[in-house]
Design a protein around this nucleic acid. Sequence first.
DNA 1: GCAAAAGTGTTATCGCTACACCCATGT
DNA 2: ACATGGGTGTAGCGATAACACTTTTGC
Lengths: 234, 234
Amino acid sequence: MNLLDTARVYTGQTKILVAVDCIVFGFDGQQLKLLLFKRKVEPLKGQWSLIGAFIKEDMSLDDSAKQILLESTGLSNVFLEELKTYGAVERDPGERVISIAYYSLTRLNELDLDSVEEYDAHWFGLDEIPELILDHGEMVQLAIKRLREKVRRQPIGFNLLGERFTLPQMQILYESILQKELDPRNFRKKMLSFDILTKTREKDKSASKKGAFYYVFNKEKFDEFVANGYNFEI
Amino acid sequence: MNLLDTARVYTGQTKILVAVDCIVFGFDGQQLKLLLFKRKVEPLKGQWSLIGAFIKEDMSLDDSAKQILLESTGLSNVFLEELKTYGAVERDPGERVISIAYYSLTRLNELDLDSVEEYDAHWFGLDEIPELILDHGEMVQLAIKRLREKVRRQPIGFNLLGERFTLPQMQILYESILQKELDPRNFRKKMLSFDILTKTREKDKSASKKGAFYYVFNKEKFDEFVANGYNFEI
DNA sequence: GCAAAAGTGTTATCGCTACACCCATGT
DNA sequence: ACATGGGTGTAGCGATAACACTTTTGC
């Protein structure tokens, strides 16, 4: 008897609708933002919601999440990680749906900020998040909490910044995520001590007259750092 | 129709089998153990596996996990937490099954050690885990990793000990989880500093002539500690 | 020349680590 | 009396946190 015969045992079991919902974080240079979508259809039309979709027969959870993100933001290759699975029986008033929540960190530019509006979507600051359908509000709160814990231990903040960035920009990002001010001397010292940033010769002069040097993320150093069992802590 | 449009209607969406699998940890006083079950039925008869079950229509994921644990160990009110959801398309060769893995920490006594054998189950030391079916081995490895991280930051180790315990017992538990020796002075100092243990007047004399004082877990202090945004680190 | 942000060093404190001896008791 | 595990204190080190001034340059 081979493995394929196991199918027999599964007959008679209940099948359930399974969905993926994505909490999409972005950073506009000033604060951390969350991408939400307005439902275009009844029921709950006009209410704010995370982006999500049902799982198709032939697609893994991770791939479904990736595809949702690609379709809703045009971005691929972004940081994407499972958050938690929500499975209360009555969580969806229509019919039972089990939802696997993912959160993602994306690089956001001015274009994105406006273009999403065409899809009835909007980037919200964390202090202006509207009421969300179902248990999406709960998902968002957990994602924020998880992000804060994670960003202190692993250098994932980079995913929210562009190809190059200045240390003051990065500090603003961290302050925005952690919701507290950081000392610039200590922040720079710490961040540079990991030795995963490379200084360039160019400066960003948009934020000051003196200008701040651009740095780029050094993937080789970073991988080495991870391989050695990293110890990142802000 | 692309993914973004699918939310509109639940009819016509694919329903999928959903299961819960439990990684059950126990501590026998010497080492951390894992509870595994031998499949009694074809196919895969005789192979080791985690305990699991399909989700029923009217039961939440958490409740399903609790029930599985109750049925397989007789224990309720144990530490139980979601680990990760496994959703690769081909992970189960029989038919597609999405599985939510939970891990639990249980109090284990000599009785349990033997009685589980009746159900074709066995407690394995972490260094003697046999090959497991499907992706269960992966689940176990992740659970061990998560437990190690978690036990350093949150005092969840208590769940593996009985009502009362001595500090040497507790140290052995932590050493067993973290797989490294700890200094007794530093360990006691640290553990007592959290102020969530209450010393009793009784001693455990089973392990030494001098005897070691029993301590009990102080839930009030612990809750207070948690409420203040705890900061537990071993 | 001045406003505005970038960039830099030192000191004090705290927590962790490492380490060795005496205590209580059953045999 | 001795063997066995229980229980304790301290000093050194490294990491974090706190803190203020100089530099650059566009206006």
